[in-house]
Amino acid sequence: MKTFIKKRLLRIAVPFLLWSVLYNLFPWLTGVLGLPQSTMSDVFAYAPIDASQSFSDAIKNIALIPFQFNVYTVPMWYLYMLIGLYLYMPFFSFGVEQATVRQKKIFLMFWSFSLFLPYAYSFFSPNLLGVSAWNTFGTLYYFAGFNGYLLLGNYLVNDVKEWKWCKTIILSLPVFAIGYIATYIGFKTMTANPECSEQEMELFFLYCSPNVALMTLAFFLVIRKVRVKSKRMILMLENITKCGLGIYMIHYFIVGLGYAIADALAIPVFLRIPVTAVIVFVICWVFVSACYKFAPKYSKWIFG
């Protein structure tokens, strides 16, 4: 347990705190540099155009880091979730090691049911399966969440033999297509309503939803069949893996720049987001990789 916390948890907790502080100090730094308040909305998608540049507000946001993220640290939602999974994992792993294949299947069955809950709460009633104003822990609460993906990965790797390419493609393509079509139609339907709330807009691409789970499953089944033999490609993938968390940590600083570049290049609207994603990824990867190359000792704690 102690080794796990030191080796895994601290490697994400330290960069999480560091970058949360830097993101929250950024508005104040723009004020020190004499930049307009609108700079924040140019850099951070969710920041208001009249965002505060005061040091006191920055300190207030920093003090709240252990409890919540804000418009300057939106990507950190993932780190809060990941830290929770890391805290949970030693106990979860013990249970999984003792579980039989049948028990894993039963858990995954209940988890699969829980994936439909966001839609059930939205379209039928928020008070289902015991959920109420005084109780948020419904019947399937203990089977819900990202721990299902942990168990699904464990089950697929350890208990399901790899299929041949033909079978993998035949099964994965329709599974992915069903998930994608459901996501596309649902998102398009929701956003067609001009009064669509943020929760409604996000509903059809929630990570713990059946359509996203289907796409994830299909993608995993295909990826695990891939065998990389090129030494250059292996080294590149190893480097991306090492830099992965760092790329994620800094990308929110670069998103605005990436979009501005795509816009300046007159990229068609339907391609602008994918192109922006590629631009942001490349910039972040080059930067983080360079840091690891020239300062590996410090980069390990700065970027995870």
Score class of each variant (00 low, 15 high):
E238K: 05
L129Q: 04
F110D: 04
L128W: 06
K167E: 04
F26Q: 09
F204M: 12
A264M: 13
V43R: 00
N239G: 10
S122P: 04
G148E: 11
A295E: 12
V131R: 15
I283D: 13
S54Q: 14
P126E: 11
A260E: 03
M236W: 15
L140P: 06
Q68P: 03
T30G: 10
V278Q: 06
G145Y: 03
S41I: 08
K6C: 07
T216G: 15
E202M: 12
K161I: 02
V222R: 02
A277G: 08
R8W: 12
V74R: 00
P194G: 09
N158L: 10
W165T: 14
M89I: 02
F303M: 13
V278R: 07
T168D: 09
D57V: 13
T3D: 15
I247Y: 00
E198D: 11
L35A: 10
A264V: 02
Y86F: 10
L151P: 08
C208P: 05
E202K: 03
F69N: 14
Q37S: 11
A45D: 07
Y142F: 14
N127W: 08
P210N: 14
Y78K: 05
N211E: 07
I181S: 02
F92V: 00
L85G: 02
L85R: 01
S54P: 08
K164S: 07
E202A: 07
A182V: 09
K300Y: 06
Y23A: 14
N211V: 00
Y121D: 11
I62G: 11
N127A: 10
F94N: 01
T168N: 02
T100M: 04
A290H: 10
W285F: 15
I302L: 14
F146D: 05
L82F: 15
I234H: 14
L150T: 05
L82E: 06
V288Q: 09
L129D: 06
F124H: 10
D159S: 12
W285Y: 15
A218V: 09
Y292L: 13
Y46T: 10
Q98P: 02
A264K: 12
F287V: 15
S230R: 06
L221Y: 11
K161Q: 12
P274L: 06
E202Q: 11
A47W: 00
Y298E: 14
K164N: 12
L245D: 00
G244C: 03
M89S: 03
S289C: 10
L257W: 01
A260M: 10
V280R: 03
L85F: 12
F116C: 14
I261Y: 00
Y80E: 10
V282N: 08
W19S: 09
C243H: 00
N135D: 14
Q68K: 15
Y207E: 04
A47F: 01
P118T: 14
E198H: 01
W19L: 13
Y207V: 11
F44D: 13
S52M: 05
R227H: 10
E202F: 01
L87N: 01
F270R: 07
W28L: 01
A182Q: 02
P274H: 08
G179W: 00
F220E: 02
V21D: 12
S125P: 03
M236P: 02
P36T: 03
R224G: 04
A218E: 03
R8E: 09
V175L: 12
G258W: 00
L203C: 09
V74Y: 00
Y207T: 13
I223W: 10
I62F: 04
V226S: 08
V74C: 01
E97D: 09
S56R: 14
K105G: 08
I250L: 03
V212P: 04
